[in-house]
């Protein structure tokens, strides 16, 4: 095996497996990062439903909004693939368009996350007392149902969700925050590549630089699919 492989050429240097050193490093790093996110997700799951005070997931999550940002992130993976494909074919203009749109979609995702975090931090309990239907209230809202005394039209109270509020806040912001940090790093990486390409530093022969960024980007995307399912969907539809 090694003898046969040794005659093959990597990008610049001969390697035993024929795989480039940096690519192997990236795979090892992603394996390691799996354990990193695995531990954070495990922490979230262990503490699911253990918060003593609200607000809880079903109070703050908006599945439609997060679905949009999830869709944007998934599409960015596709444009990443298109960027890499364009580069290997030597279509530099298409490559720049696609890599910039990948970065822009990544920034859009981060924008959604910032908006979402602010939204959660400003969460208000809002009960329409005039048309009170206790069955439709969430667990957290029910604890305020008795505030609807005679003559109160609607009840409002600020109950922002912060990392300190409860276990949900602590684990949610830590997990999604670290994912957001990964996306931010990816955006910086993509912008660096784009910047470099305008100065002629990215060529079809050096596509490994882009390949590594793409691997990382897809990985961060896959992690989000898990987070979206476990945190958001299971949080709002606990029956699944």
């Amino acid at each position: 095996m090694a003898q046969a492989a040794a005659t093959q050429h990597g990008e610049h240097e001969e390697t035993t497996t024929g795989l480039n050193h940096r690519k192997l490093l990236m795979w090892a790093f992603l394996g390691s990062d799996c354990m990193f996110f695995g531990s954070l997700i495990a922490t979230y799951v262990v503490y699911q439903g253990k918060s003593k005070v609200g607000p809880f997931p079903e109070d703050v999550f908006s599945i439609p909004v997060t679905s949009v940002s999830t869709f944007v992130l998934l599409m960015s993976s596709m444009s990443m693939v298109l960027a890499y494909a364009a580069l290997t074919r030597g279509k530099m203009k298409a490559f720049r368009i696609w890599i910039l749109s990948t970065a822009i979609m990544g920034m859009t995702f981060i924008g959604f996350q910032v908006f979402e975090f602010r939204d959660f931090a400003n969460y208000e309990v809002h009960i329409d007392c005039a048309h009170l239907d206790v069955e439709k209230l969430t667990e957290f809202e029910k604890t305020f149902a008795d505030q609807c005394a005679d003559g109160v039209e609607e009840f409002e109270e600020q109950h922002g969700l912060t990392p300190r509020t409860n276990l949900f806040g602590t684990t949610f912001f830590t997990l999604t925050g670290f994912h957001g940090a990964h996306v931010t790093l990816g955006v910086i990486w993509l912008l660096s590549i784009a910047f470099h390409s305008f100065r002629g530093g990215v060529r079809p022969e050096t596509n490994l630089d882009v390949d590594l960024a793409a691997l990382y980007w897809h990985f961060v995307d896959v992690v989000w699919i898990v987070i979206f399912t476990v945190v958001y969907l299971f949080g709002v539809f606990p029956g699944i």
Partner: peptide, 28 residues
């Protein structure tokens, strides 16, 4: 990475007053 996450959680508890290991907040 596992100890990294555990230490991050501990540091967040200590630095920012989070609740990862605070039994009073329901933590285990």
């Amino acid at each position: 990475p596992v100890i990294t996450v555990a230490l991050i959680e501990l540091m967040f508890d200590r630095f920012f007053g989070m609740n990862f290991f605070v039994p009073a907040k329901g933590a285990n």
